[in-house]
Simulated scan of single mutants.
Amino acid sequence: MDEVDILFDREAVTRKVKELGQIINADYQGRDLLVVGILKGAFIFMADLVREIDLPLQLDFMDVSSYGDSTVSSGEVRIIKDLEYSIKDKDVLIVEDIVDTGLTLKYIKEILHRRGPGSIRICCLLDKPSRRKADIFPEYVGYSIPDRFVVGYGLDYAEQYRHYPAVCELKPSVYQK
């Protein structure tokens, strides 16, 4: 792991996910929840998060791309996998690994809003507000971080590092070649 510096170790991430789960439990008490994970990055966070949610819920996934193998979003969003279930009148919680520019999430939220959900909220593990280019403000945020390129706990660089159990900063020497 010479290419990375640990920002949040496994224990810190576990504590934060538990905390988010408790808040979501309180906010959605008595309601049926549809949790929508944004693939691939959010899958580990989402798996841990839903185990902390003690409510009736359904799971679904979307796979969208705006990065490719780059460290910078292209701004062009492609839907690779759409939802399998109707969200009409449902309370939807979008689970994302990181909110950066917000452009991809804004696009997803606009698409889902047109499908008539009861509500849409966003839960992200990491938020980079300094990079925001869209009016997107997640309701549930694990950590707010500065403008650093992070990997691990589902986040990747060129499909690598997702399996690391911690959130780590990727050293520039890896991606500035």
Rank of each mutant, 00 (worst) to 15 (best):
Q176T: 09
G68Q: 08
Y28I: 13
K88L: 13
S66T: 08
K133R: 15
V141G: 04
D60M: 14
V141S: 04
I80R: 00
R114H: 10
I80D: 01
I98T: 10
Q29L: 04
K40Q: 02
T101V: 03
Y67G: 10
V36K: 01
F45D: 02
D54R: 02
V95A: 07
V150Q: 11
V150G: 13
I87G: 03
C123L: 02
R31N: 14
K81V: 04
L20I: 01
G102T: 07
L170V: 05
Q176H: 08
R131L: 15
I94L: 12
D5T: 13
Y85A: 14
L20P: 05
R131N: 15
G75E: 08
A26G: 13
D156G: 06
G142R: 00
I120A: 14
G75Y: 14
D127E: 09
T104S: 11
V95T: 04
G37A: 04
S119W: 03
L125F: 08
R10C: 08
I79H: 04
V167R: 14
L7R: 13
I44E: 00
R15E: 10
D156L: 03
S119P: 06
L7F: 09
L93I: 05
D69W: 05
R31C: 12
E3W: 14
N25W: 04
G102I: 02
D69V: 00
Y161S: 07
Q58Y: 09
R78F: 01
I94E: 01
L125W: 13
P117V: 01
Y67T: 06
S73M: 11
Y157N: 10
L83G: 09
V36Y: 00
C168H: 11
L125Q: 10
R114I: 06
L126T: 06
R148A: 08
D54P: 03
D60T: 11
I53W: 00
E159N: 06
P138L: 10
E139K: 12
D9V: 14
V72S: 06
I98Q: 03
R31S: 11
V92D: 03
T71Q: 05
L59T: 02
S73R: 09
E52A: 02
K81H: 12
D9E: 15
E169V: 10
L20K: 02
K133Y: 11
L57W: 03
I24Q: 05
G154D: 02
G21T: 01
F43R: 00
Y28F: 13
E19W: 08
F8L: 13
V151A: 15
I111W: 05
S73K: 05
F8Y: 14
A134I: 15
L170H: 08
S73V: 06
H163C: 07
C123Y: 01
C124A: 14
D63I: 01
R51H: 07
G152A: 04
V150S: 15
L39W: 00
M62L: 12
A12H: 10
I98L: 07
K18F: 00
S74L: 06
T14E: 07
Y140H: 08
